[in-house]
Write a protein that binds this DNA or RNA. Structure first.
Lengths: 151, 151
DNA sequence: ACCTATAGTGGGTCCACACCCACTATTACC
DNA sequence: GGTAATAGTGGGTGTGGACCCACTATAGGT
């Protein structure tokens, strides 16, 4: 109770503080795992978007994930170099690059997802399965209400 | 449903992703409000620690908040310049600086707390009061299980 | 007294993230 | 056909956070 390293109740009484703290921990843990494979969180996000919604024009990828198109170009470039993504010029509009996940990319995403779930299991260890679902449902509603996340 | 800006379900299905996203949104929103007053999140954390636990040696502040002592020195220095905190040399151990919140500092914290709750109300708008409490309780348990947050 | 450890401080590095601009290639408009 | 808009790219900037080291002053151990 008198732990000299305990966080101030003034802060732990704020859900936003807890959100920020636990979120950062989650992010850091996953990023660390991905770094082992030479990947970053954006790489996973791009692979996920392609897997879920199919091929995208690069610009649409950027828009969907809320990244600067210039930064997206770099991420896609790295994924392409690693063979996890294919870029082909759209014949209908030769300015566009259509980005598609390769078989290798889909396999990589599956592994990444497994890593993410492992991290999540560790983070949410103190909660029961039912509580985790509760938490997820609540967070999802908050997330959807965030600006730029219309369902 | 076919919103071209919707996030990939592969990601929104991960609680860690939602935590990270909503946490970042919370952090950013509060940081923006504090910036108006020329403060950062660490300033608020320090004031909260002092208000909750009373005066600290600067080193203990750093340890409690998990910050590098060198960085803490800078934060405390800024708070002192703004008159929100007082540093006095501990006569029992003249290496130590005892940091105390001034009346002004306590007042500032109250305002900051109000800002934080406003941000929180906006963020958690889609949830009922009962759901917010649920969310808070779940997050608190996760937070306490985080490395270095023993109760 | 001597040596080691500790508190605070100033300085610097490294990294990730978010932006922004300029430029080329291509398309759309009129 | 000429002009404006758009897709992608390369390069650069600014910021915030975490970390690390060297240095001074003081304390503690023997």
């Amino acid at each position: 109770m008198n732990d000299p390293d305990a966080a101030p109740p003034s802060l732990t009484g704020l859900s936003t503080y807890l959100l920020s703290r636990t979120g950062k921990a989650a992010r850091a843990a996953l990023a660390e795992r991905l770094a082992v494979r030479g990947l970053r969180l954006w790489h996973m996000a791009v692979l996920a978007a392609l897997a879920d919604f199919g091929p995208h024009a690069q610009r649409d990828l950027a828009s969907r994930l809320g990244v600067d198109p210039s930064d997206m170009a770099k991420v896609v470039d790295q994924l392409a170099s690693a063979g996890r993504v294919e870029r082909v010029r759209d014949p209908a509009d030769r300015r566009r690059l259509t980005v598609t996940a390769t078989e290798e990319g889909r396999a990589a995403l599956a592994e990444l997802d497994a890593e993410a779930r492992a991290v999540q299991d560790a983070l949410l260890a103190p909660l029961t399965a039912a509580e985790r679902e509760q938490l997820h449902a609540l967070l999802l509603r908050v997330h959807l209400a965030l600006p730029g996340n219309a369902g």
